[in-house]
């Protein structure tokens, strides 16, 4: 089902928190706990390190590629409370810092570029639950970015975000939040009320402001760690996967017009630890997830159109 084709020696002192492929899948960016970003290129079926640089003043949590329409652009976010925008100098395999966005007072947990049909936009999610939408002053000058919209999603803090990729629907963001236990540990004060773990926000067609559109049933019991929103590919409803600190993976169906969310599959990992990452393939036919002991699980639809685990890769 899955064949091991390559092993990469990282020469890094620490964890890789995030792996991100570019639009074509021939380049890979890694964000590392040692403040660095690494870019690897696929050359003649082998992955080769193209660039590695010290990008932040703290662990780099996430790194993302912009659509190639906007140039070769990477955005990264970090414990150091900043978002940085880098552009490649193609001749030298080096990356230039275009902008450093420092509006947040807390570490930035996740960033995501909007689907390219919307224009060049970046959503950033601070650990205190503030969501900021950044836009450059113009497509040819990516050195100046400003916050065009900002809202507070959850007082307990947010961990991850995902854009609705569909073209004919208003901009939507799914936001994954902390539970009370995590928030109490994280912020050192007591929160009494549990809030929504997942929230779907959308730009209202009337007011043009971000509004909470839907809160799904509570299936996860702990903080959400990662969300992956599959490409629509003509489906009637969106496929979205979320995973949480207690090891639960949920596949949601989202109705793009009403924003209604229903779960289609939920599985608790038997290891008991967190499931750290979920990722759809391009077609939305296969979901992969990696859990607390590094095991990768793969789900596909079977002939009864139910989601079934088709394999597990021991990753150690």
């Amino acid at each position: 089902m899955a064949e091991l084709i390559d092993k990469l020696e990282l020469r890094s002192e620490s964890y890789v928190h995030c792996i991100s492929f570019n639009y074509f899948g021939d380049r890979m960016a890694l964000s590392c706990a040692d403040q660095s970003i690494q870019v690897w290129n696929l050359e003649e079926n082998k992955w080769k390190l193209s660039a590695k640089w010290n990008a932040h003043n703290g662990a780099v949590f996430k790194v993302r590629w912009a659509h190639p329409e906007f140039g070769t652009i990477l955005a990264s976010c970090s414990f150091d409370k900043s978002v940085k925008i880098y552009e490649e100098n193609p001749q030298e395999n080096s990356w230039t810092l275009l902008a450093s966005l420092v509006e947040s007072k807390e570490p930035i947990e996740d960033i995501q570029f909007a689907p390219h049909h919307l224009r060049l936009m970046l959503a950033a999610c601070s650990s205190n639950g503030e969501i900021r939408i950044y836009e450059p002053s113009s497509v040819v000058n990516l050195k100046v970015w400003s916050v065009t919209k900002m809202f507070s999603a959850c007082a307990l803090g947010s961990n991850c975000i995902a854009w609705n990729p569909a073209v004919h629907e208003p901009p939507m963001l799914l936001i994954g939040n902390n539970d009370v236990q995590t928030a109490t540990e994280k912020f050192g004060k007591n929160f009494d009320v549990d809030e929504e773990l997942l929230q779907l926000w959308a730009v209202s067609e009337d007011t043009k402001e971000w509004e909470k559109k839907c809160v799904p049933a509570r299936i996860h019991e702990r903080s959400i760690v990662d969300i992956s929103w599959a490409q629509l590919m003509g489906r009637s409803k969106h496929l979205v996967a979320s995973c949480s600190y207690d090891g639960i993976v949920v596949i949601w169906r989202i109705d793009g017009s009403t924003g209604a969310m229903e779960s289609e599959m939920n599985i608790r990992d038997d290891v008991g630890g967190p499931v750290w990452r979920v990722s759809w393939d391009v077609l939305g036919t296969m979901l992969t997830a990696i859990n607390g002991d590094g095991t990768v699980k793969v789900w596909k639809r079977n002939l009864q159109r139910e989601w079934a685990e088709v394999g597990a890769l021991q990753n150690r």
Partner: peptide
């Protein structure tokens, strides 16, 4: 608060070419 506790020590991504990259601590 232990930031490490809530930070991914393992990561993965699936590329448009249907390649899965995994990192495991």
């Amino acid at each position: 608060y232990r930031p490490h506790k809530y930070l991914a020590k393992h990561s993965l991504a699936v590329s448009p070419l249907n390649v899965l990259a995994t990192y495991s601590d």
